[in-house]
């Protein structure tokens, strides 16, 4: 107990002495993070849906089932159409690793299993982000992913919980 108290006392002194320095540091780090996230190469991917999709958000486990092609309908029972970029596209790699926390080779094997065992269908593969935006905007029930700066009012962002 005494030792514990001792550590608390020390940490209080540290906070008092270096508090302003720590605060400055935190602000700078936050600024850095904001700048990095707006940098086009590292821009985060957002899940976009056709505006016909009524549900505002989706659980991560559900999102994996959707892009794993195991879930076929939205919660309002309208059919889902999944659009993805080619496996070797860096945006696809970033999406599967950062958003789904899966490797592209895992997704590909899951699709192959479904397609060649008669238990599911493959996602629609598009060749560019522009095509992704067009297709998702034009297909009811469509879902895909886009860089933040490419999202316009023909699309809606699906919030991942």
């Amino acid at each position: 107990m005494r030792r514990h108290w001792h550590y608390l006392a020390v940490s209080r002194v540290v906070t008092q002495r270096f508090g302003s320095l720590l605060r400055k540091c935190a602000v700078r780090c936050a600024l850095c993070a904001v700048m990095v996230s707006f940098c086009p190469v590292l821009a985060a991917q957002d899940i976009v849906v056709n505006p016909s999709v009524s549900q505002p958000s989706v659980a991560k486990s559900t999102l994996r089932a959707i892009f794993g092609m195991r879930m076929r309908n939205w919660s309002d029972n309208t059919p889902i159409t999944v659009f993805v970029l080619r496996n070797d596209d860096p945006v696809h790699t970033a999406f599967s690793k950062e958003v789904l926390n899966m490797f592209p080779h895992q997704l590909q094997r899951a699709w192959d299993r479904l397609v060649f065992s008669g238990t599911g269908q493959a996602p629609v593969v598009v060749n560019s982000l522009q095509e992704m935006a067009e297709k998702v905007a034009a297909t009811p029930g469509a879902v895909g992913y886009l860089k933040r700066d490419m999202i316009d009012d023909r699309l809606r962002v699906l919030i991942v919980q």
Binding site: A59, S61, M71, R72, N77, S117, G118, T119
Partner: peptide, 24 residues
């Protein structure tokens, strides 16, 4: 294989269905 897959139950966290025909 040649089958009909009826997905009778589909919610956000549970899917269930039945397949009829020649199944792998």
């Amino acid at each position: 294989y040649a089958l009909l897959d009826y997905r009778g139950h589909s919610t956000e966290f549970v899917d269930a269905g039945v397949r009829l025909g020649r199944i792998k």
